[in-house]
């Protein structure tokens, strides 16, 4: 291996900022801000969900509203395999099992439905959330006579580091997909699916595979979160808001680069957090809706797109000045 071939300058430019951010995040529990760990776990959940949503939907333009379904599969995996009493697998094993289960479900659902046109796919995926909720709720209460399930409690620090780990994996997977032929194939599907198919891309396979990978990542978040909320029933596991939020966060943040969805996720989850007093939550939803419409109408590239445009304009202005 010849080290001199590597463009160190380029490499440090690409990775310096992410590494610094990661280091700052990794030291979070040592700052002595006890609630901060919980708060940043909350951010990480939405960042991971949003980034994995963008991984598939952002590139292909297929709007998936199944996030809550996969998140719920994760929660139920934890409830079944990591319960408060009785036989319990280690958390890491539960995460792997849940990711595999979610991958499988998404693969099957994707294989069936990804030939559908945009709107139908969105409705179908949203229906999946409702179906899973109804069927699981029915089986749990009416057939098994269950009254909810309990998951073993983990410490906030454990939860935080697991989420951080999943976050890093998600980012690496996204980066990998973007910079390989899969990313190219996905984007060509998003631009013109027929043309992509004609130019030799196995359209269905690529779509289904990436959909399944993003679903697997979503479910791991569910597993970790279940160890925090402890009590699990179908209505807590399959909350439709978990489907809507990542989509909006991604659209607001902008899907052109890796940072956009993450920025959108942090902004929205923080706004949600500070509105947790009084009856302000209704205003949160009202703002949520208004920003969604405004973003679609006036900021099609999202917040990061807007910032980039402004930046480019500033740069352009500077150049113009020096020239003059």
């Amino acid at each position: 291996m010849n080290l001199s071939n590597i463009n160190w300058k380029q490499l440090s430019k690409t990775f310096a900022a992410p590494l610094v951010i990661l280091l700052a995040l990794a030291l979070m529990p040592f700052y002595g801000w006890e609630y901060g760990v919980s708060l940043f776990s909350h951010f990480l959940i939405y960042i991971i969900l949003t980034v994995s949503w963008v991984m598939f939907s952002g590139a292909t333009g297929y709007i998936s509203l199944a996030t809550a379904a996969f998140y719920g599969i994760g929660i139920y995996s934890a409830a079944l395999l990591h319960p408060a009493t009785g036989f319990s697998l280690p958390l890491i094993a539960v995460i792997i099992v849940s990711a595999a289960a979610s991958f499988l479900v998404a693969f099957i659902v994707g294989a069936i439905t990804l030939r559908l046109k945009g709107i139908y796919f969105a409705m179908f995926t949203f229906g999946l959330v409702l179906l899973l909720f109804q069927v699981i709720n029915y089986v749990e209460t009416s057939i098994l006579g269950q009254r909810g399930r309990f998951v073993a409690l983990e410490s906030n620090e454990t939860i935080y580091y697991y989420l951080l780990g999943i976050f890093v994996v998600t980012m690496i997977v996204t980066f990998f997909i973007k910079n390989t032929k899969y990313g190219l194939a996905l984007r060509s599907i998003g631009e013109n699916e027929d043309a992509a198919a004609h130019s030799g891309v196995n359209v269905t396979m690529v779509k289904v595979l990436i959909f399944a990978v993003s679903a697997a990542l979503m479910s791991t978040v569910g597993v970790v979160m279940a160890t925090k909320t402890i009590y699990v029933d179908a209505s807590t596991a399959f909350n439709p808001m978990m489907s809507f939020s990542p989509a909006l966060m991604a659209i607001f943040g902008g899907m052109a680069n890796l940072y956009g969805p993450a920025v959108g996720a942090v902004i929205f989850s923080y706004v949600q957090e500070i509105l947790q007093t009084g009856n302000l939550n209704n205003y949160y939803m009202l703002i949520f809706g208004s920003i969604l419409i405004a973003t679609i109408l006036y900021m099609p590239q999202g917040l990061m797109g807007l910032i980039q445009n402004l930046w480019n304009r500033l740069k352009g202005a500077k150049r113009a000045l020096t020239r003059g």
Binding site: E34, Y35, S38, L39, H42, N156, M225, K228, T229, I230, Y231, T236, N239, M241, E273, L275, Q276, T277, G278, N279, L280, N281
Partner: peptide, 22 residues
Amino acid sequence: IEYDDASDTAACVRNIEKLCTQ
């Protein structure tokens, strides 16, 4: 000090943590 959880378990847990630790 009253926080809103809108019957969302995750929000409830976070609120209780905030109430206790912050």
